[in-house]
């Protein structure tokens, strides 16, 4: 499902993020060099294991992919720490990756990324993992994209 009506939330500082559950999750787990918007990309109650959700982040020209893996993942959120999101642009030459058989596969040159391991590239020509999109969850189960860890392919800066 594509989230067509994104809700852009005011960003920055702890104020907005205070509405997200769990104090620990409100912290960035890396140091973004840019200022990112917080955008709603889904709701935990609508996610099914291994059924990916596509969304745009941090702007309309960049597709992200959200997936509940059903097993714990690096950077995973939710009760099972299994909800992760990444830029869907392959870090090799920018083709859109597919979520298939529990991993991300690029149909152009066959790079493969392990969603449970911060989308590390485990085969193929890509030199870095897919940029991981940090997620936060609000009390009502809404999932927000908050920042991107890694460079989105085709950009000199993410924003």
């Amino acid at each position: 499902m594509v989230v067509s009506r994104r809700r852009v939330v005011q960003v920055l500082g702890g104020v907005t993020m205070a509405s997200l559950t769990g104090a620990g999750k409100a912290q960035f787990w890396f140091a973004p060099s840019l200022t990112y918007p917080a955008i709603k990309v889904g709701n935990v109650n609508n996610l099914k294991n291994n059924e990916p959700v596509y969304f745009n982040y941090p702007d309309a020209r960049s597709q992200g992919i959200l997936v509940k893996l059903g097993r714990p993942a690096i950077g995973g959120v939710g009760r099972e720490r299994d909800i992760v999101a990444f830029s869907a642009a392959c870090t090799h030459m920018g083709c859109g990756v597919q979520y298939k058989g529990g991993r991300f596969l690029c149909p152009c040159h066959y790079s493969m990324f392990d969603p449970a391991k911060a989308a590390a590239v485990y085969q193929g020509l890509a030199s870095t993992g897919l940029p991981q999109i940090q997620l936060g969850i609000a009390q009502n189960g809404d999932i927000f994209a908050r920042a991107v860890n890694g460079l989105i392919w085709g950009r000199a800066r993410n924003i």
């Binding site: 020209r61 920018g94 083709c95």
Partner: peptide, 14 residues
């Protein structure tokens, strides 16, 4: 603007 896949400038983190 973002580069075009398969042909645009490739400039990655490494």
């Amino acid at each position: 603007n973002p580069q075009n896949p398969l042909g645009g400038l490739v400039y990655t983190e490494t």
